[in-house]
Amino acid sequence: MVKVLRTVEELQRWRAQVRAAGRQVAFVPTMGSLHAGHLELMRAGRARVPAERGELVISIFVNPTQFNDANDLAAYPRDEAGDLALAAAEGVDVAFCPEPDALYPKGASTWVEVGGLDNHLCGASRPGHFRGVCTVVTKLWQLVAPDYGLFGRKDYQQLAILRRMHRDLFLCGEVVGVSTVREPDGLALSSRNVRLDPAARTQALAIPRFLDEVRARFEAGEREVEALLAGAGERLGAGEVHYVSAVDADDLQPVVRVEAPTLVALAVVFSGVRLIDNVLLEPGAS
């Protein structure tokens, strides 16, 4: 059974016991509605911290400060009982499931921001989103004090921002990126996928198909971004395209030619459901 902790004080007492026992901690922060992508993060955490050596911890918390739209927050899927059953099957030891006022007590006024990396991609249209992400992850990291924190590469901008935050704030442990998990037809797994109606679910396949085309052009020798992204509007036209961009994989600034590791990322809305995905292009990689 998964040990469920709901208050900061409970988590702090548990962490002190683990520290005293000399055991390691792998941590997977989630907003619940767990899917196979989350389970892969848990497996990656358990691989780094086997049961005989330490604890596998998740958090289930729909963080209100990273939502720009109250309707999006209200619509975000929640299934704690189902999530805990899936976590138990993966050998999770502890789940931290707080209420919002546990992490944002009355009068809380401290925020964590990473300047510069949130100017493009999702950050351009979601002001304050990454401030909310960084703030809640900092709080959770401070409480859990993990040896390893596991995050998916599907949310590449988030991963890059959290890595920079981790470095700049001298936080303990290591931020670990885990490869995107996909459906058999190529669509990246997301908690939002359950909100797609059948027609939108079919239309959304344009995303992985377009990214496959971008990779194929790159592998054929194309390096100019304009040519790599040609046809995006036509290929993704069934959805509302928020952005299709090529940015430096480290500082997330736009590029016009792929001369260093480059992220091609996009966000497209189908029937009101916003999906993101990306492909990493690495010159010289074998």
Rank of each mutant, 00 (worst) to 15 (best):
M1C: 05
V2K: 09
R6E: 15
R6S: 13
R6N: 13
E10A: 14
Q12Y: 05
R13F: 03
W14R: 09
A16E: 14
V18N: 02
V18C: 11
V18H: 08
V18R: 06
Q24A: 11
A26T: 03
F27A: 03
P29M: 02
S33R: 04
H35G: 08
H35P: 05
E40P: 02
A44H: 08
A47I: 03
R48N: 05
R53T: 13
I58T: 12
F61V: 10
V62R: 04
P64S: 11
L73T: 02
L86G: 01
A87G: 10
A87D: 12
E90P: 10
G91A: 07
F96C: 03
P98T: 07
P100M: 11
L103I: 09
L103K: 13
K106N: 13
W111L: 14
V112E: 06
G115E: 11
D118Y: 09
N119K: 15
H120R: 10
G123L: 09
P127T: 03
Q142H: 12
P146E: 10
D147A: 13
L150S: 01
F151H: 03
D155F: 02
Q158P: 01
H166Y: 04
D168I: 00
D168K: 01
V176C: 05
T180R: 10
E183V: 01
D185P: 06
A188L: 06
S190L: 08
P198V: 00
P198M: 04
A199Y: 14
T202I: 13
Q203H: 15
Q203I: 12
A204P: 08
P208I: 14
F210V: 09
F210K: 02
F210Q: 05
F218Q: 03
E219N: 11
A220Q: 11
A220W: 07
E222I: 15
R223Y: 14
L229Q: 01
A232W: 14
G233E: 15
E234Q: 14
L236V: 03
E240V: 07
V241N: 11
D248L: 04
D251E: 09
V255C: 05
V255R: 00
V258M: 01
P261F: 00
P261R: 01
L263K: 08
L266G: 07
L266C: 06
A267D: 01
F270N: 04
S271E: 13
S271K: 11
V273H: 00
N278P: 03
L280Q: 12
E282W: 06
P283E: 07
